[in-house]
Design a protein around this nucleic acid. Structure first.
Lengths: 193, 193
DNA sequence: AAAAAGCATTGATTTAAATCAATCGTTCGG
DNA sequence: CCGAACGATTGATTTAAATCAATGCTTTTT
């Protein structure tokens, strides 16, 4: 159980099987059907979710009711509203399943317990957050310095698997474009070769 | 010496004066004149800089030679090309001084030494990186979900002191707008009241 | 003190993306 | 299996930002 989770964890930290045991004990599995919410804006984010299987999206809803995709998560990724998770404030983002999902949940108290018993776990956490920060920074840089077409090219180079698995209009949203514009960009790219 | 640095550090971690002593020993002060580089793209980022006094900007240069401001740093902020710092790869961003600056530098080896001798320091580091991640995430959300005018309003609410101290065209760049557009947005806002 | 550089503003024009609208194919649910 | 919802595409139009260009003001530099 939790194969992918431990596989990923292993990339950051070496663990004895006793330590794995302890960690396993604090995790909980969760299944989600396509379209179900993992988190709704307004609720408190009680857990960080690791994706064993499936795909999810995190998004905000603006004053006009339009959705804006902040993040995708496929197998091996973590997803949460981290601010809400840390502070206990209501979440500002929604998270829902794009496919049937198998998740591994890590609650705040579980995290505290694990850190107490397996301090090495901290390494995993901080590597994850550092990676997430660097990725966000790159994305901001792309937003302010690349054309929409370049951003899309960049996106499919970086995340070809996401591009394959999620509806195109969500990719458009992630890139800050209208679905029509992305469709035309793709057409332009396709005919240009 | 390093007043602001320790003041900030104190907000995350309680330190004995012995511990402060140890840390001080590993820091180095650096002065920078206005317009001087702290880091140039292509060089390796050897240190994380804490701003005791002054203002800096971090920016990328695109294929057309246009500069795009990724970040500002005023008193109390940290600035670096974190990816380059961690990996030792050449930096992709430039950092220069917008005013005469007094900085506190923390090199990789200094960080390692401090962490060895004062493990609590890790708390500071991870709080900083978490805060930086959350800020970046908010910025991405603003980029994909707010109008240019809303983004500017949001910016001056969030960072009134930056808006006061840096040239307007750099704020425009930070927001992903042309200087002319920001000028017109400000005019619109001013006359609308 | 004069010259130059940097910066913000304003106007005119161009350009690209958003929006509005319709169609077509696919998949999903009853 | 059929109807409805969803998604992608395409065309026509509107809208907003970028670009080009000029001016005036302020701050630096010589």
């Amino acid at each position: 159980m939790y194969e992918r989770f431990f596989q990923k964890l292993n990339e950051s930290v070496d663990l004895t099987s006793a330590e794995k045991e302890i960690i396993t004990h604090h995790l909980q599995p969760k299944r989600l059907r396509k379209k179900q919410y993992l988190l709704q804006a307004g609720d408190v984010c009680k857990a960080i979710a690791f994706v064993e299987k499936g795909a999810l999206r995190e998004y905000s809803v603006d004053e006009n009711g339009n959705e804006h995709v902040l993040q995708f998560a496929l197998e091996g990724w973590l997803i949460s509203d981290l601010y809400s998770f840390i502070t206990g404030e209501p979440a500002t983002y929604n998270i829902d399943a794009l496919d049937d999902c198998e998740l591994v949940l890590l609650t705040k108290s579980a995290q505290d317990e694990i850190l107490k018993k397996v301090p090495k776990f901290e390494t995993y956490t901080s590597m994850q957050i550092t990676g997430a920060y660097l990725a966000m920074q790159k994305r901001v840089n792309a937003m302010i310095s690349l054309s929409p077409e370049q951003r899309y090219q960049n996106f499919i180079n970086l995340y070809p698997n996401i591009a394959r698995r999620v509806p195109q209009h969500m990719v458009a949203s992630y890139l800050g474009l209208s679905p029509e514009t992305l469709s035309r960009i793709r057409k332009r790219i396709a005919t240009a070769r």
